[in-house]
Design a protein around this nucleic acid. Structure first.
Length: 615
RNA sequence: GGUCUCGUAGCUCAGUGGAUAGAGCAUCCGCCUUCUAAGCGGACGGUCGCAGGUUCGAUCCCUGCCGAGAUCACCA
């Protein structure tokens, strides 16, 4: 039981006894005391003045006296307006510091025996990973680490969208224009190689469309448009998909290829394998560099036919209904959604059918009671519907479904990233760039390290900048990706936190090199305000991890790490550690530094960020 | 049009039913003979989108409006 829980329950008892008003412990508000007031923790008294029938000050004084009387670690208190500020005894803080440094798992909860699946990344295989995938991967990875830290067994999965029109475009372009080239022959990273053919296809297609727009047929179509307010450009913009499916020669070729693939045509399947293998090899490199990994891969080519048995089950259970054309639907109007198609009239599945089937299959595979889907917010509606349907099926995991929805990463000026327009920010390029800047900034400072160590340090710094930039923002929010700011190394950044860690690490190296005794810190009695602030920040760590887990939101943890680092830097600036006034003060400050280093390293690890030893 | 999300300093973002709403960047001013200045401090900067309501107390909860985005396919 934490000290805050003790305080809450003691306040509840006090109110119950003093004012004969039964009060729940969780109705008591306790906050860290702001530094401009005296005290460590503050109880908000306003809620109890009605029961006390006294002024807030008098009520606070009575409760304060009760707490001081009954709680050994409450050393004193003061009341300002409706706020009761408690002072916690130094011995309690010293014990806390000792316990924390003896606990290798500070901030981690014991295993709870429960299982959660986290799905993230889930790319298409027709092109390399870009900035949006980076945000996705960092969120998914960090959430899985955080859930692990609070006790869950986490299964990290991705579902690879390896089939469909998109990959066929790359396949067709390579087959038609590739002249047998390979990533090896061209010296191009293999996923980029495949992506280049996708872009090539889109270029050819665009040219075909432009030429078609000059035909009499197209002109007649434009002249006969019903929405007369549309300009020619707008009209043909809207018409593009229709054209691709009805007029385009390239479109016909791709559809033909998809049909062959579905029929299992050996040449087509072999080509598909080849293209996908190139892409996977490239993805693996990128994932590895990004520091993310998966426990199990699902492939859409294996799951896209799933879910039909659920359709039948749904009809039998009365969850779904069938129309005369034999298409199958669900009426979700009572839940605030619309009627939703779950099976086409030709009997083929749609996206949500697959997802229903995949959900059940994965439960059969792992039995996870919670499933986190890390998918961009453009699919909010889809997941609301999916979860609602699974709830109506009374799937055992239905209550544990969560859509970790995140806002699109936009380019400055509100532009969305589009492969066809060449406005994507490529994940590999991005990592190159942050490392280049990290190298620029670090070169002199780490010059005496070995080349390998230098490279390692630079990678850690660059990735920290990128990862922290993306994870410190609440996932729900759209974020504007400004290339210059994202790789900033000063201020509220990953490298700032790394730098604070490096300071603690430097102290610990001296402790072992000079065999400094850190054990007599208990003799330090007059804890300074700056030291107390640091202790309070350290104390908050488990709660920060828990909040990040409860809300599936690593940004809470990112804020926490930044605040702790900031606090440590203030401490570092204000007091001497190695040359402290007394051996006890030195021991105490070293213990504090050690604890800070531990928490920073562990907290950042949960964000997927590694610490360098020097920088 | 319906639904959902977002709106806090010039910019990027935190934040909580409670004390004077906080950081970073930018601008300006200080601080390295002292454990790494990738640091620390200070100044400047706010009608917490607008209007009502609930409350002892609202930036936070509720309603309406305004603005931005997403979505509402027999696409994935």
């Amino acid at each position: 039981m934490s000290i805050l829980d003790h305080i809450k329950s003691a306040v509840a008892t006090a109110v119950s006894q003093l004012y004969a008003t039964p009060t729940e412990a969780n109705a008591v508000q306790v906050n860290p005391t702001p530094s401009e007031f005296t005290g460590d923790y503050t109880i908000v008294i306003f809620p109890f003045v009605r029961a006390a029938k006294k002024a807030p000050e008098a009520t606070g004084a009575e409760i304060g006296a009760y707490l001081q009387e009954n709680m050994p670690f409450v050393k004193g208190f003061n009341v300002i307006k409706g706020f009761l500020n408690l002072e916690i005894s130094n011995t309690w803080w010293l014990d806390f510091l000792a316990d924390m440094n003896n606990n290798a798992d500070y901030g981690r909860q014991p295993r709870n025996g429960r299982k959660v699946m986290v799905e993230y990344s889930s790319p298409n295989t027709n092109k390399p990973l870009h900035l949006g995938h980076v945000r996705n991967c960092l969120l998914g990875w960090s959430c899985s680490q955080i859930l692990d830290a609070v006790g869950y067994d986490v299964v990290k999965v991705q579902i690879i969208n390896d089939r469909g029109v998109a990959i066929c475009k790359s396949m067709y372009a390579w087959l038609t224009f590739g002249e047998g080239k390979t990533p090896e022959s061209e010296g191009i990273k293999s996923d980029h190689f495949v992506g280049d053919y996708y872009v090539l296809f889109e270029n050819k297609s665009r040219a075909e469309y432009a030429a078609w727009q000059d035909t009499d047929e197209a002109k007649a179509l434009f002249a006969s448009r019903t929405k007369t307010e549309l300009t020619e450009k707008e009209f043909f913009g809207e018409y593009k998909n229709k054209w691709f499916n009805t007029h385009s020669k390239l479109g016909a070729e791709v559809r033909d290829m998809l049909l062959k693939w579905e029929a299992g045509d050996p040449d087509t399947v072999a080509l598909w394998q080849q293209m996908n293998n190139w892409v996977y090899a490239g993805f693996d490199t990128t994932y590895h560099r990004m520091g993310v990994a998966f426990d199990k891969l699902y492939f859409e080519s294996n799951t896209y036919l799933l879910g039909k048995d659920l359709v039948e089950e749904g009809i039998n259970k009365g969850i779904f209904y069938q129309k005369e054309d034999s298409s199958v639907w669900i009426d979700l109007t009572d839940a605030g959604y619309d009627h939703k198609l779950v099976l086409r009239s030709d009997g083929t599945s749609v996206y949500i059918t697959q997802d229903l089937g995949t959900a059940r299959m994965r439960y059969e595979d792992f039995g996870a009671e919670k499933v986190v889907y890390t998918v961009a917010d453009e699919q909010n509606y889809h997941f609301s519907v999916l979860f609602e349907i699974l709830k109506r099926f009374e799937e055992p995991y239905a209550a544990g479904l969560y859509h970790l929805s995140y806002g699109m990463v936009e380019l400055p000026h509100g532009a969305r990233m589009k492969t066809r327009e060449g406005t994507v920010v490529d994940a590999d390029d991005l990592m190159d760039e942050v490392e280049r800047l990290a190298k620029e900034a670090s070169a002199e400072k780490i010059a005496e390290l070995s080349p390998e160590e230098q490279q390692d340090t630079i990678q850690k710094i660059g990735l920290a900048a990128l990862k922290f930039f993306m994870l410190r923002v609440n996932p729900r929010k759209r974020m504007v990706f400004n290339p210059e700011e994202s790789v900033e190394l000063l201020g509220q950044t990953g490298p700032f936190i790394q730098y604070s860690f490096v300071r603690t690490h430097g102290l610990m190296k001296r402790v072992s090199a000079e065999q400094i005794d850190m054990s007599n810190f208990n003799g330090y009695t007059d804890i300074l305000p700056i030291e107390k602030e640091l202790l309070k920040a350290l104390y908050e760590y488990p709660a920060a991890v828990q909040q990040a887990a409860d809300e599936y939101d690593p940004s809470h943890l990112a804020s926490y790490c930044y605040n702790l680092a900031k606090e440590f830097n203030r401490f570092w600036h204000d007091v001497k550690v190695m040359s402290a006034e007394t051996p006890e003060a030195r021991a105490f400050r070293l213990q504090l530094s050690k604890a800070t280093g531990k928490v920073l390293e562990s907290g950042m690890k949960l964000l997927g960020i590694d610490m360098p030893e020097r920088m």
